[in-house]
Design a protein around this nucleic acid. Structure first.
Lengths: 271, 271
DNA sequence: CGAACGGTTGACAAGGGTCAAGTTCGGTGG
DNA sequence: CCACCGAACTTGACCCTTGTCAACCGTTCG
């Protein structure tokens, strides 16, 4: 099963973390879907974006999907799967510094210096759709709607990072995890604040890397949150169910987060 | 001394943290200066940027220079002084989440939802130059150089934030401070890696807020770094002198930071 | 002169890291 | 079918880093 195969292999087809698995490939643009969340786009941009995107590519867990030697001049839209960007430390191991979910665009942060610093690695199997930057540049020229949409998408990610910074600086381990879960909940269910189940394919080691703590302590904190009856883990399905959303919000102080505003019905920001 | 005064009050004139104090006001555009670091611009863009920027405004320490009710539709270029963006926590106090230095543009992160989340507050007195976003939008339309320059400036800030995240996640208190000092050194002396003196107007409380630790421990760690003869503080001038740059780099693992590449002579990225 | 603020220092406590052993579970091979 | 293996998770004991609280000092400013 070559990873460049376009055929959708049933066995590999992820079932849980698909952004829009019901979409047909042809006549559909994931870039349009993603970008129109950050600025109104019309059919014209839809067509433009559809033309410039490459063919979807199936990738395995652990695969490096972007580096200075790989997909260098590309943006990648993540259709399925979770990915992270890593930086090598001096002692040789990888430090995870960012997390990408289905519906995220990878590569905005190093738009002018592609792959110069971060490697993007898949945390699960998945499906990615590349788009060459030079074509995007051309498309943006003279199309202010597209400019705003890209700027919006980039700033959205930047704000999420600001939220994470805020989380790291101001919370202790347990609330940091609570905040992190709420962040993922918000990002995964943008249009559906009522959702309470989160598919959560990360190992405790990876969670620890993201939040700056050890896997051991991640374990202890998750147990603690469960004992408080704020959430429940299903080991079988790797799901987390939020049992007491209000309480969790208040524990984590999450209501001040940027993405949280995307969840609220009184949302005056998106679109 | 009203803060909107255009006259440069000698007594208030900051002497240390000016990005280009020798520049005359007229015929000069700070936006051009800043943006041309992130993408080649020509005289035409220089003229455009000069036309759209507002008059410089002197601001006091502690002044809120941007919020949902203040400079809402503006970007602000910081000519003099240091500022930070804050978010209110549920218990009512301010959490600092970002730091702006002379030569930074404030307001990129909330370009589409101005002032909705963060307040920008001056940490020192200073001088800011506003520019209305709608004029910038108009200028970007059809000018791909400007688009790239703005995108570049935004991504530069985003990458600096990624560096800070990396710092917070992977270092203990002492190395976190060392890394932070090196970050400021890099940002303040972009073209001058050989500089060893840093003017450092932040209180230990603010440093602690930025790095997620207490002022008490900031004090301990700074003393420790000094006892290692890595740096020296001058209380009079509020200067920090880096005594052993190589050692400090290695202690903090700073060479993997994004901004560090802007310092190196083998710089293939900027411009 | 006295507040107010920022920095410094010390004693003590708590949160989280480290290490090591044990468990569960899915996969692999005989 | 069973034995074995490794990866991820769990738990406990111990200790180090950092937070907390408090007192004290030096400067600045009204």
């Amino acid at each position: 099963m070559p990873s460049s195969s376009l055929a959708v292999d049933e066995k590999l087809q992820p079932k849980h973390y698909t952004v829009s698995s019901s979409q047909a490939w042809f006549g559909y643009s994931i870039y349009f879907d993603i970008l129109s969340q950050h600025g109104a786009l019309s059919r014209h941009e839809r067509e433009t974006l559809r033309m410039l995107q490459g063919s979807p590519k199936r990738v395995r867990k652990g695969e490096v999907i972007k580096s200075d030697t790989c997909n260098n001049g590309m943006l990648l839209a993540i259709q399925d799967g979770w990915a992270c960007s890593c930086r090598l430390t001096k002692d040789g191991d990888r430090q995870i510094i960012d997390l990408y979910l289905p519906g995220d665009i990878v590569g905005l942060r190093d738009y002018q210096q592609s792959g110069r610093f971060d490697e993007i690695i898949m945390l699960t199997e998945g499906l990615i759709i590349p788009a060459p930057k030079n074509k995007i540049d051309k498309a943006m020229e003279g199309n202010s709607k597209l400019i705003h949409a890209f700027l919006g998408a980039a700033m959205y990610q930047s704000n999420i990072m600001a939220d994470r910074l805020n989380n790291l600086i101001s919370h202790d381990a347990t609330t940091r995890i609570a905040y992190f879960i709420l962040e993922l909940h918000a990002r995964l269910h943008l249009g559906h604040p009522e959702a309470r189940d989160i598919f959560f394919p990360l190992s405790q080691q990876v969670i620890g890397d993201l939040l700056g703590m050890t896997n051991v302590h991640v374990c202890r904190c998750l147990n603690h949150l469960e004992s408080l009856e704020l959430l429940h883990r299903d080991k079988e399905t790797r799901n987390i169910k939020i049992l007491n959303y209000e309480e969790l919000l208040s524990l984590a102080g999450f209501s001040t987060a940027y993405i949280y505003s995307y969840l609220k019905p009184s949302n005056t920001i998106a679109h």
